[in-house]
């Protein structure tokens, strides 16, 4: 979007842009759960993640992913990467659990 190497792809204030699309969508339950996850992880009693870390994680997704992903997809990707970076969960645990969740989902749908 920006050819200026000094400007991150999220840093768009002042750039030209198109018409503002004002249609709004109702949030899906899974999106609300991602929101809740972030609220709980940033809660002063836990402080597992900060809002700045969420944003930094989103800024590290890469321009292509940033543009292709939905808002809460960026959030869960950033939260997950941050949790992995801090060692709260491991890549191994995550990979195995995601496979289990997908397998459970396949059974339920079949």
């Amino acid at each position: 979007m920006s050819d200026d190497p000094g400007r991150g792809y999220h840093d768009i204030g002042g750039l030209p842009g198109g018409r503002i699309e004002r249609a709004e969508h109702a949030h899906a339950l899974w999106e609300m759960r991602v929101d809740a996850l972030m609220v709980l992880l940033t809660h002063p009693e836990r402080r597992v993640i900060t809002v700045d870390e969420l944003r930094r994680g989103i800024e590290q997704l890469g321009a292509e992913a940033y543009d292709a992903m939905t808002y809460y997809e960026r959030w869960i990707a950033s939260v997950t990467n941050t949790l992995l970076g801090k060692g709260v969960i491991t890549a191994d645990e995550l990979g195995r659990r995601m496979a289990e969740v997908a397998a459970r989902d396949g059974e339920g749908a079949g």
């Binding site: 809460y72 990707a77 969960i89 995550l94 659990r97 969740v101 989902d105």
Partner: peptide
């Protein structure tokens, strides 16, 4: 419907936490 990749990720992360 079948879960998307990121929906699957949300469930997995939530369960682990």
């Amino acid at each position: 419907g079948p879960l998307t990749y990121y929906q699957t990720m949300e469930i997995a992360v939530r369960e682990l936490l």
